[in-house]
């Protein structure tokens, strides 16, 4: 269970407050969606939770199954079971996708005191998971995300998620830049990982992703906090009416 309580975050180098009392709970096994206008702090929330530098937490807390996330290094958060699917996955020339995946999987296992996967066991696993996402052997051999299309990059994010088997997955605008077929493929990949225990926080601007990844709860975020929480219908309402009415209610 992810629990965020009254989280306040500002930029490290500027006097600019981004999150202003964000509170949010995602129980185990649930899928929550976050929608909200540009600049409301959705990506900042995902970065702060996953441990990116450049932000300063000025108040509040964030825990995963009771463990304080904010005190941990980014790699420890990952090993604890937090995963962020990036809106813009980074290209890393010179680092092979397979080497990267194997290093990540085994680093996490090591951090949790588990045995590392052998080369053979890893290869078997990655081939099976890649196949389900229609990621071919050639893509696995290439450097991380280099020369990947927008759709391939997002599928590669889901492959990493499938390999790392996190408890809590944050998907930051995973639908951005995807055509309908690519979005369906990615959504299928996500749905395949829903097992009743794993939780998801899906950040999106568009209702259509939620047609494929059905959320249990929808939150609306604006100006650094959640302003409204509801069922899947809330996403439809935003799709039809925009955010103006909701924002007006709050003010």
């Amino acid at each position: 269970m992810l629990e965020i309580k009254d989280l306040h975050v500002k930029l490290e180098d500027e006097d600019k407050q981004i999150l202003k009392g964000l509170s949010l709970t995602v129980p185990s096994g649930e899928v929550h969606a976050i929608m909200g206008p540009n600049g409301s702090g959705k990506s900042t929330m995902s970065y702060v939770l996953s441990g990116k530098g450049g932000y300063e937490v000025t108040g509040g807390s964030a825990t995963l199954d009771g463990v304080d996330l904010l005190e941990m290094e980014a790699e420890e958060r990952a090993a604890t079971g937090l995963f962020l699917a990036f809106q813009y996955p980074v290209e890393i020339p010179g680092v092979g996708n397979m080497t990267f995946l194997r290093t990540a999987v085994n680093s996490q296992r090591k951090a949790r005191g588990e045995d590392e996967l052998s080369a053979a066991a890893f290869l078997k696993l990655v081939r099976a998971r890649a196949k389900a996402l229609k990621i071919d052997a050639e893509m696995l051999k290439r450097p991380v995300n280099v020369g990947f299309s927008g759709g391939e990059k997002k599928r590669n994010e889901i492959l990493q998620m499938a390999m790392l088997e996190p408890k809590m997955c944050i998907l930051d605008e995973t639908d951005s830049g995807l055509d309908v077929d690519a979005m369906k493929l990615v959504a299928e990949g996500v749905n395949a990982l829903r097992d009743g225990k794993r939780s998801f926080l899906v950040i999106t601007h568009y209702q259509r992703l939620l047609d494929h990844i059905k959320p249990d709860v929808v939150h609306i975020m604006a100006a650094g906090r959640i302003i409204k929480t509801g069922g899947p219908d809330l996403a439809l309402e935003v799709e039809h009416n925009g955010y103006a009415d909701l924002l007006a209610e709050v003010v």
Binding site: S50, E75, V95, T103, A104
Partner: peptide, 17 residues
């Protein structure tokens, strides 16, 4: 950060880069 966010310790991630 991309590498570290996947659980690769910072020192190893730096070496990889």
């Amino acid at each position: 950060f991309y590498l570290v966010s996947r659980g690769v310790p910072r020192r190893i991630a730096k070496d990889m880069l």
